[in-house]
Amino acid sequence: MSSPVPPWAKISVDGIATLDLSLVSYPTEVIVRTAYDFTDRLFIHTDPAADGQRATVTLVCKRGDTDLAVLIGEFTNALLDHRLRRDIALETKMIRDLIVAQAFIEADLLDHSEADSDFESDPRGISRASVTPR
């Protein structure tokens, strides 16, 4: 018995699944990265709509004995994870680039003014801050 078809997908009588995806929720990069991971099990076509807001993803099983409904569920969950990966990558891009560049470059890209300063210059304002009174 095959699994129920998720409500966000349609499967034709020929066994071809279509997903209508929001490009706001799932940018093209996210869809392509997800699709790549499934290219061992599925033939996949992506077709962005003319308005640039949505995309149609077509999925066809490579093997006849695969449960397409299950794969649609896995594909959709994988979209979420790839969306999250993209968000984390964007949020951490500057630091990642700095780490890699600083690791290989001979010059120093980091601002050491704080670390190299003495207590009199007090760059963090430690003497001015009122910590817990003793």
Partner: peptide
């Protein structure tokens, strides 16, 4: 907190890994 020290540590570890 200010990430500079953390970045320096990660840079050293990254360089070591490579």
């Amino acid at each position: 907190t200010d990430p500079q020290t953390t970045i320096e540590l990660l840079t050293t570890k990254y360089r070591t890994k490579k």
